[in-house]
Design a protein around this nucleic acid. Structure first.
Lengths: 138, 138
DNA sequence: CTGTGTGCAAAACGTTTGCATGCCT
DNA sequence: AGGCATGCAAACGTTTTGCACACAG
């Protein structure tokens, strides 16, 4: 969902600079539904901009996360994944290949905190993780 | 939910040995709803059995996870948490203090994969994470 | 007695940080 | 020119592993 143009504007509006490295990262995140890890972003950027460093990838992803432009997914025990789609949606995780699939169904009308907790706990949102086996691994 | 007796039997049935260290770990997990990290388990075991090592805690939690007797929660970006309640339930995570609260509401009748995916993806279960602020932090 | 469990130290892993340099604006 | 960004290397915190010894069965 995030376009290179949007990310460029957001960074500029926050007094940040647009570098070739960042543009490559933006390009790889644009319309990306593969939930890449930092390393996957690094590898893909490296192909078109070999001089890039891992540090830059990490720092840029951290920046985008802090600006709310990517969501950091804590789903995989091995590493963090990044999702440029910041709209509320859910995920299916294949137990075998660890692939993460988007689920866009809107469950919000059915998912509420029990009444007994509503007064004491403020919910900003929720996230459903489905666990199972995908068609390639089944 | 897991009792010391049950865990003892499960391990024995799998040809594993019951050591004083393991018994202490079982005791701390029994009816524990605080979702401790390995370090928290370590600290609590150390109080009653000071000679215990971190390695033993890790290895025993790994064993229990492999036997399906504890659930490893990948919710907190900083560390893994362990939940001796292996029945399906959900969690509320306070964004401020990182506390994890159990939510026992049964949403299963409402939460299904979209029809378009049902044929290709086999779902074993799902887990809802609510994000918000708890009463102590609000 | 046999083999599993323990515990130390060290490795491994993803991630973060300090700092000198580079470059966008 | 000024300040944010980059990139290297080193630090970090959690988790895992190799190995010698201990002990449960």
């Amino acid at each position: 969902m995030e376009s290179v143009e949007k990310l460029t504007h957001v960074l500029r509006n926050n007094g940040m600079k647009i570098t070739p490295q960042r543009l490559m990262i933006f390009k790889i995140l644009e319309n990306n539904t593969s939930h890449p890890s930092a390393e996957e972003v690094f590898k893909r950027v490296k192909k078109i901009y070999p001089a890039v460093s891992f540090t830059t990838i990490y720092k840029t992803l951290e920046t985008l996360r802090d600006l709310g432009e990517v969501k950091e997914l804590i789903i995989d025990e091995d590493r963090k994944h990044y999702d440029p789609n910041t709209n509320s949606h859910h995920h299916f995780i294949c137990s075998t290949c660890k692939k993460i699939l988007d689920i866009f169904e809107d469950f919000s009308s059915h998912i509420k905190l029990p009444d007994s907790l509503k007064s004491d706990y403020t919910v900003f949102g929720f996230q459903i993780s489905f666990y199972g086996i995908c068609k390639e691994c089944g």
